[in-house]
Design a protein around this nucleic acid. Structure first.
Length: 590
DNA sequence: ACTTCTCGGG
């Protein structure tokens, strides 16, 4: 049992003073360690401050305790105090304080500590070496420095391997991480829980479900799957590989779950089946797990993906009540949520009230403006972001280009596309090219769009040809439409949707022979186009609609309203696109 | 008595 010994202890004045003081230092140091272990840094600090005498181990316990509780700046400050007090650090101290530098992304300070380690002759000790390796790997912009250190290690322990695999994975190169893992196995290094969880994470990052499942099996065999972080990684892996059934199955089988387990499931389901994310929130409550900030950012995204404004507002209310509004990622999720739920005003409001904004905050609102057709506002916000000193990435450019595309701001959109490489040195990925194809296509510059596809540095995929095909439909260009459709069918032979659009194009171009032939092909392949679905919130209910719906109790009034609306459109001179549609279906009424 | 590597948010 520990008890708190302070300066006020009266026995200090006796002759065995020195000895007693030593005992009390050891005891109090144990107490400090224990307080940190229990997660009470303030109590640990109080013991430390009241100690009559502190030795190197006491200082080190404080520093490492701060780091393991993520109080990195306190750890660093205390290290400075320690040096000022004339105490010389050892390998234990330095590995802890190097870890603090990693936690704060301070490579320069880390390098200074590296020098200290050399000075005190501990730089080649295993723990110091590994913490330095981790610091260089995680703080550096690339892996080259860390790789050089790793290759020079005298002895590669499982920790060194884990550090490297983790760093590659965090830098977005899961393949390199797995490659290193294979090497590690070949060298006969034993698995431990850390390697298991990070390798599964690497499988998740490259969405390799087969390899992930093999690793899952390996962890079961070695018993490491009983460790929570490993189990959580397994759930995460199945979610990211879009194997939600397996994720749920494993989740249900877990004998122990923590907050991260629940959060992993909720964020895993948030995109594909947002309703399940909401029911998981309720379930976790009845399992006595309290949701945190992470939980609610995923829940806000789930509301965004369901486009349910009322539900979203209620969630926002809960977020305010729980005091999560100041959180950056939380704010970002809310900006996105309101935009996707159709309330761009609330989206702006949340954005304006955010005390800190990062690239994602700006991008979310730019995307929101794009969704709502506010091209000019998107462009202005993008420029404002640049002025505020934020460096755009390809996602941000995609947001502004796509907003321009939807608003018909062709010149503006192309301007930003060109600025990417000329001004900002941002590489346009396949998605950005897709946006630009869409932009040119909508503007009727079909030949330019086709030429861009031919000279882009990637193999065009289905969605890029799809953008061209859609534009061909819009501008009634059967020649390029046929080319685009053929390319898509090469990539995805049974795409009924492609035939349908192509037949629309032939129909609207009045090429009836080709129209009939395409229709015949649709029948022959026997596949059906997946129906698009829309939904709105009506009071407490979500009502969904599909084309040709006869099931909805509102069918009759829906088509009545549609006729009124299209009459309004015609009367006010809006040219509707109903011509192409007429060939596909007739409204079904009862 | 003190040390390194693992899991969740566009």
């Amino acid at each position: 049992m520990f008890y708190h010994i302070t300066k006020k202890v009266p026995f200090r004045k006796f002759h065995y003073d020195a000895n007693f003081s030593k005992v009390s230092t050891v005891t109090n140091t144990k107490l400090i360690t224990d307080y940190f272990y229990q997660g009470f840094p303030a109590k640990a600090r109080q013991v430390f401050d009241e100690m009559p005498h502190r030795d190197l181990v006491t200082w080190t316990s404080m520093i490492s305790g701060y780091t393991s509780n993520a109080y990195h700046s306190d750890a660093l400050a205390l290290f400075r105090d320690m040096l000022a007090a004339g105490v010389t650090p050892n390998a234990f101290t330095l590995s802890s304080v190097i870890k603090a530098c990693k936690g704060m992304d301070l490579q320069t300070s880390g390098e200074m500590l590296h020098a200290q380690a050399v000075k005190h002759g501990v730089d080649r000790q295993e723990y110091v070496e590994n913490s330095l390796l981790d610091m260089y790997a995680m703080c550096g912009r690339s892996m080259s420095e860390a790789r050089a250190v790793f290759d020079c290690l005298m002895e590669k322990s499982v920790v060194s391997w884990t550090t490297m695999i983790a760093a590659y994975t965090h830098h977005g190169d899961g393949h390199a991480g797995i490659h290193l893992f294979r090497q590690m196995i070949q060298e006969g290094v034993e698995l431990n829980q850390f390697v298991c969880s990070i390798v599964i994470r690497a499988c998740a990052s490259i969405k390799n479900r087969i390899l992930g499942k093999q690793m899952h099996a390996a962890t079961v065999k070695s018993g490491h799957d009983k460790v929570l972080p490993v189990g959580n990684s397994i759930v995460d892996m199945y979610c990211r590989c879009m194997s939600l059934l397996e994720a749920e199955q494993y989740f249900n089988e877990m004998h122990e779950k923590d907050l991260i387990t629940w959060n992993t499931m909720i964020s895993g389901f948030e995109q594909a089946i947002p309703q399940v994310a909401l029911s998981l929130l309720i379930k976790m409550g009845s399992n006595d797990v309290t949701p945190n900030c992470f939980t609610y950012t995923s829940i806000a995204s789930a509301c965004a993906n369901m486009a349910v404004l009322n539900c979203g507002r209620q969630v926002h209310g809960t977020i305010i009540r729980r005091g999560f509004v100041g959180n950056l990622q939380m704010g970002n999720a809310l900006v996105d949520m309101y935009a996707k739920c159709g309330s761009i005003g609330d989206s702006q409001k949340v954005f304006n009230e955010m005390s800190r904004k990062d690239l994602i905050s700006w991008t979310s609102l730019i995307n929101g403006y794009g969704i709502h057709g506010y091209g000019k506002e998107a462009v202005e916000l993008f420029d404002e972001m640049i002025i505020s000193g934020i460096e755009p990435d390809s996602v941000a450019f995609m947001g502004v280009v796509s907003a321009c595309s939807h608003a018909g701001l062709i010149e503006e959109g192309l301007k930003y596309f060109n600025l990417m490489k000329t001004e900002y040195n941002v590489l346009a990925d396949r998605e950005v090219y897709g946006c630009v194809v869409d932009l040119l296509g909508r503007a009727g510059k079909l030949t330019e769009a086709y030429e861009l596809i031919q000279r882009m540095p990637f193999k065009p995929d289905e969605s890029i040809w799809g953008a061209l095909l859609g534009a061909c439909k819009m501008h009634k260009n059967a020649k390029l439409g046929k080319i685009a459709a053929e390319e898509i069918l090469n990539l995805k032979p049974k795409g009924a949707k492609t035939y349908v659009i192509l037949s629309d194009i032939y129909g609207s171009c009045k090429q009836w022979d080709e129209f009939a032939e395409t229709k015949k092909l649709i029948k022959e392949t026997g596949s059906k186009k997946e129906a698009g679905m829309s939904w709105i919130e009506l009071r407490d209910e979500v009502c969904s609609f599909v084309v040709g719906d006869t099931i909805s109790p509102y069918t009759v009034s829906i088509y009545k309203t549609l006729r009124v609306l299209s009459k309004h459109m015609n009367d006010s001179g809006v040219v509707s696109d109903f011509n192409a549609l007429q060939h596909n279906f007739e409204p079904v009424t009862r």
